[in-house]
Computed example of a mutant assay.
Amino acid sequence: MQGTRLDTARIRAARRIIDPVFLDTPLYRCEALEPDLGCAVSIKLETANPVRSFKARGTEMVASGLAETGARPVVCASAGNLGQALAWSGRGRGLDVTVVASRHAPAAKLARIRALDAGVELVDGDFDLARERAAAIARRDGIRLVEDSLDLETCEGAATIGLELVDTGPPFNIGPSFDAVLLALGGGALATGVGHVVKALAPDVEVICVQPLGAPAMTHSWRRRRVVTTDATNTIADGVAGRRPIPAVLNDLLLVADDAVLVREASIIAGMRLLLDHAGLVVEPSAALGVAAILEDRDRFAGRHVVTVVCGSNVDVDAYRRWVGAGRRRGEDSATSSPE
């Protein structure tokens, strides 16, 4: 694929480096969701691993490279999932991991990072402020800064999900039958990685990226074909709540995404509720974006076979109960109406 930073041969090689515990995650058609969504839906379950998200596919690549060179200290900024993944991968390879996060990040994510023996530094701001602080620490101490989505390891690690979607043969045989894949869009590692593989190996499959209306920077950037920043974010989907897209990542996204859509908070919550009620899955808001996109545009997906990547389940339990329980108590689901 011309002009992209990603390489399909390197992505195939990544499967030999990533711990098998993060590979070949479940992929199955979830018929129980289909009456509510009006289309065939398959789930790629990236929560069935020790860190409950897809991020470790990338951090396995990062940590392996650092261990080979003998480098020990490493720092990253994280909304929670990357930090947990880097802590897990680093602990197994003797790395000294520091994670910079917002003081407002979910407490459950911060607790798991600390439990994996990583240091945590909190900032009084959002993810983009944490990113600035992590970069400052790296400059000051002369250590490796892991930048999610900018570092190719994070994108090509995530891209191995795409191989599992489109490679035919056991145990995954649905590749030729689905015609769209819905990907959560934040910094862009998942979307560019999976999108690259899908477009390289199954070009007729539509790649659709999904962001919350309250964190639209990358979607606006994709639509305008230039970096668009925002002053703030306002969404429960903390895992995708960035304000400042990375130019190189946007360039990769422009090559592989067929569409980028924005969804409302009510639709995200409705998606979380459907995944709980009909798939038995407790997911964080970012992981419900694909279902939210179907809820908001049923006509677009009617009669189609769609794959959604359920990308994480690190969620604050109390917040989850409030979100999922509120609509059930009201006996309403406003997300099923057309978006404003």
Rank of each mutant, 00 (worst) to 15 (best):
Q2P: 15
T4Y: 07
R5K: 15
L6V: 15
A9Q: 15
R12C: 09
A14Q: 01
R15P: 10
P20A: 13
V21K: 06
L23G: 12
L23I: 13
L27I: 15
Y28K: 15
E31C: 12
A32G: 13
A32P: 15
L33I: 13
D36G: 08
L37I: 02
G38W: 03
G38Q: 05
L45I: 14
V51R: 01
S53H: 08
A56D: 09
T59K: 01
E60A: 15
A63P: 03
A63G: 08
G65C: 03
L66I: 04
E68D: 14
T69N: 07
R72N: 07
V75Q: 01
V75C: 04
A77P: 04
S78F: 01
S78L: 06
S78N: 08
Q84F: 11
Q84W: 05
W88H: 14
W88P: 09
S89D: 06
G90I: 08
L95Q: 00
V100S: 09
A101F: 08
S102H: 05
P106A: 07
A111F: 03
R114G: 03
A118T: 08
G119P: 04
V120T: 15
E121T: 13
D128R: 11
A138D: 05
I143A: 07
R144A: 05
V146F: 02
E147Y: 12
E147I: 10
E147P: 02
L152R: 13
C155P: 03
T160H: 11
I161R: 09
E164I: 12
P171L: 07
N173C: 14
S177P: 04
L185R: 01
G188P: 05
A191S: 10
V198D: 00
K199I: 05
A202P: 04
P203T: 11
V205F: 07
V205P: 02
E206T: 13
E206P: 06
G214I: 08
A217H: 02
D231Y: 01
T235Q: 02
D238T: 11
R243T: 14
P247S: 13
A248C: 12
L250P: 00
A260W: 02
A260L: 09
G271V: 00
L275G: 02
L276S: 08
L276M: 12
G280D: 09
V283K: 06
P285M: 03
L289T: 10
V291T: 12
A292D: 06
I294Q: 01
L295K: 00
D299C: 02
D299T: 11
T308A: 08
V310E: 07
C311F: 13
S313V: 04
A335Q: 00
S337R: 12
P339M: 06
P339E: 04
